[in-house]
């Protein structure tokens, strides 16, 4: 077992993650697009690309750091950050692409990300089950996190949805045999619930020591419920769902600000970054809420268009 981490690689991992996240954040906020005025499906598709990119940015930062902590003991550990970086690029590309056609390379990247997500979940499950204590709270808290590979799966899924939606031949785009707005709403709603689950687990681990820690376990489920309802109920305007999703989008960035402060509060603060970025609250995690909210809003628009 000769794998050891050095400061250089540590710095590189962290920098890559931070850069990816910044890029994704920039993208997710970007509205203007190349090319002609888009139709609603294309607009929705681009929102999904951006959402996927932001999620991938979060995964990139997180997996680059966490796998660095694990010293890349298994070469397979390089795959998720790599895949996340590709999804990020694909999202950047797709987010600016106004053509109503799917893109073969992007499509392949998204498929690959989903496969990586599935495999990663398997690896992480194995990691949990081989540790003493097996399936226990303790290993859920501290062994390889199950939520992380699932986020990559979700990023790939959102990207694929974007490709399908923009490729729609009918006036009303369809996804998995359903109206796209509905299918996307269901996907994002489930994603939001899953992400809430992870936040709940980690904030439980942190004993909800700060009042704000209940926000990400209360607001997103509400938004998810509203979105799921909008997805299955007859299409109409859903101002409540829209507002909740906007709040969740804000919450992601707010969460990052809280985590920044959380790191500063730990022993040694930011000067002790090489420890506190790892042991403190995870900086890249909260924006995944923003990412999902972006896609959720797109789903809502598609759905409302049908009304």
């Amino acid at each position: 077992m000769g794998t050891h981490s050095g400061h250089g690689r540590l710095g590189a991992g962290v920098t890559a993650g931070v850069a990816g996240l910044a890029l994704a954040a920039w993208l997710s906020g970007r509205r203007a697009a190349r090319g002609t005025a888009s139709t609603e499906p294309v607009r929705a598709a681009r929102a999904c690309h951006r959402s996927s990119a932001l999620l991938a940015g979060s995964v990139l930062a997180d997996s680059a750091m966490e796998h660095e902590r694990g010293a890349y003991a298994n070469p397979a550990m390089y795959v998720p950050p790599l895949m996340a970086a590709l999804v990020l690029l694909a999202g950047a590309h797709g987010g600016g692409d106004a053509r109503p056609q799917r893109h073969r390379v992007r499509h392949a990247v998204y498929g690959g990300a989903m496969a990586t997500g599935v495999a990663g979940t398997g690896f992480h499950l194995y990691n949990i089950l081989k540790r003493p204590g097996r399936w226990s709270w303790h290993n859920l808290f501290h062994a390889a996190p199950l939520g992380a590979p699932m986020a990559l799966l979700l990023a790939g899924g959102l990207g694929l949805a974007a490709e399908r939606v923009r490729h729609g031949r009918t006036r009303v785009p369809r996804l998995l045999g359903r109206p796209a707005g509905q299918a996307l709403g269901l996907l994002v709603g489930a994603g939001l619930l899953g992400t809430t689950g992870e936040a709940a687990l980690l904030h439980f681990r942190g004993a909800f020591q700060h009042r704000a820690m209940v926000l990400p376990v209360s607001l997103p489920p509400l938004a998810a419920a509203a979105l799921l309802h909008a997805a299955v109920a007859p299409p109409t305007r859903r101002p409540l769902a829209r507002w909740l999703l906007r709040l969740v989008r804000l919450l992601g960035w707010l969460g990052m600000a809280f985590h920044t402060r959380g790191i500063a509060r730990r022993q040694g603060g930011w000067r002790n970054w090489s420890q506190n970025l790892f042991a403190g609250p995870p900086l890249p995690a909260p924006p995944s809420f923003s990412a999902l909210a972006v896609a959720g809003l797109a789903a809502l628009r598609l759905r409302e268009k049908r009304a």
């Binding site: 681990r205 020591q209 730990r266 022993q267 420890q275």
Partner: peptide, 13 residues
């Protein structure tokens, strides 16, 4: 402490 508590820092191992 495994999480912050007021002005007290969590354990740094």
């Amino acid at each position: 402490l495994s999480a912050p508590r007021g002005p007290a820092h969590p354990c740094v191992y």
